[in-house]
Amino acid sequence: MSGAVLAQLIAQGQAGGTDRLTLRAIAEEAGELGATRALTRLGLADEGAERDMAELRELLAAWRDAKRSAWKAVVGWLCAALLALLAVKLGLSELVK
């Protein structure tokens, strides 16, 4: 999309005074043009971008799940180690086996 529609709306606003409808159209066109430019610069303007974003979201979700599982495992190991140390300290070493 080019800025032709936006330029036409701005010219229309300057020529005849700007009403609320024209301002809204200018804002919408400017927003769409800016979003298109941003997506193009990020390399997300092609047809495969939607699939790429879905795959990235899946990878991110998997990473978060793995991170959460790792933290749970670390906390579990720490609790088991602390309980084992406590048992040894209290002379209950037969429970540690």
Rank of each mutant, 00 (worst) to 15 (best):
G13H: 13
R20P: 01
A84C: 08
T40D: 01
I10F: 11
A25C: 06
A49Y: 13
L9T: 00
A15N: 09
L83I: 07
G43N: 02
L42R: 14
A49I: 04
L6T: 02
L90I: 09
R68Y: 07
R51G: 06
D65G: 11
R41H: 05
E55P: 00
L39S: 11
A66M: 08
L78T: 10
L23N: 05
M1F: 10
R57T: 04
L23T: 00
Q14N: 10
I10V: 15
A62D: 11
L60A: 05
A54Q: 13
M1D: 05
D65W: 09
K89I: 05
A30K: 15
T40G: 09
D65M: 08
W63C: 05
E29G: 07
Q14D: 01
A61L: 09
A25D: 07
L60Q: 07
E55K: 06
V88D: 00
A62E: 15
R24W: 03
G17R: 12
Q12V: 01
T36C: 08
L6Y: 08
A25I: 00
L9F: 10
I26R: 12
K89V: 02
G16F: 09
C79G: 03
G48K: 10
L6K: 08
L86R: 14
D65L: 11
L82Y: 02
W63P: 00
Q8P: 00
Q8S: 10
S2I: 04
A49D: 01
A62I: 14
K67N: 08
E47V: 12
D19V: 09
A81V: 14
W71P: 04
A87L: 11
E55F: 06
A87Y: 05
E29W: 09
D46S: 10
M1K: 13
Q12I: 01
R51V: 00
R68A: 12
L92E: 00
S2T: 13
R20I: 02
L59M: 05
A62G: 08
L78N: 04
A45V: 03
L21Y: 06
A15C: 04
L85S: 05
C79L: 12
D65C: 08
D52F: 10
R20D: 00
K67H: 06
G17K: 13
C79V: 14
L90M: 09
L92G: 07
R51H: 09
R37N: 04
V74L: 01
W71H: 04
A66H: 12
D65A: 15
C79S: 07
Q8Y: 10
A81Q: 07
G16R: 15
G34Q: 13
L83H: 03
R68T: 14
A61V: 11
R24Q: 10
A87I: 04
R51K: 12
A73S: 06
R24M: 03
L82K: 11
G48H: 11
L92N: 09
L21F: 09
R64L: 08
A30P: 05
Q12K: 14
G48N: 12
V5W: 08
G91W: 09
L86G: 14
L33Y: 15
E55A: 06
L85F: 14
E58K: 15
L39Q: 09
L44Q: 05
T22F: 11
A38L: 15
E50T: 12
